[in-house]
């Protein structure tokens, strides 16, 4: 189906994008850079997990570091490997907003109901 590209017809959407050899080279460079980032973060996490007791950092700090590094890793995977960074805004929002809302909702319940967990022991058993 051919389209005439006048001002009133929006662009047909890009389906199965093709790219040239040079663009491929650029893409591959990004892929390998991201690989080193992910490997680096994982190495830091494992090292920290093994040595934190010996270097005198508190468990709270270590835990928060783990969580921040994990979210950073998740960002790189979703943004670059799953290509979400280069999708249109509508798609980004449709994916991220519902997930974040529901995830926060779950965490909210775990944390607020967790306050009562001490009473669970006393009153239920």
């Amino acid at each position: 189906m051919e389209h005439s590209h006048d001002h009133h017809t929006p662009e047909p959407y890009k389906y199965a994008v093709h790219h040239s050899e040079e663009e491929g080279k650029k893409t591959r460079r990004v892929i390998w850079n991201m690989f080193w980032v992910l490997l680096g973060i994982t190495t830091v996490e494992v090292t920290l997990g093994l040595i934190w007791k010996n270097i005198g950092i508190s468990w709270g700090v270590v835990k928060m570091t783990f969580i921040i590094l994990t979210i950073a890793k998740a960002y790189y995977i979703v943004a670059y490997y799953m290509h979400l960074k280069h999708e249109v805004k509508a798609l980004k929002n449709t994916i991220i907003v519902p997930f974040v809302l529901f995830a926060l909702y779950l965490l909210y319940h775990i944390i607020t109901e967790g306050v009562y967990s001490g009473m669970m022991e006393k009153w239920l058993y």
Binding site: H3, Y15, V17, V88
Partner: peptide, 29 residues
Amino acid sequence: MSNSTVMDSKTAWGGNNVSPYGASYGKLM
């Protein structure tokens, strides 16, 4: 991202071949 294959009418999902998401049905699902 130079050229692209325009979707055929069988796999497109209405809207005159225009997706607000810039993605095919399968990818979106």
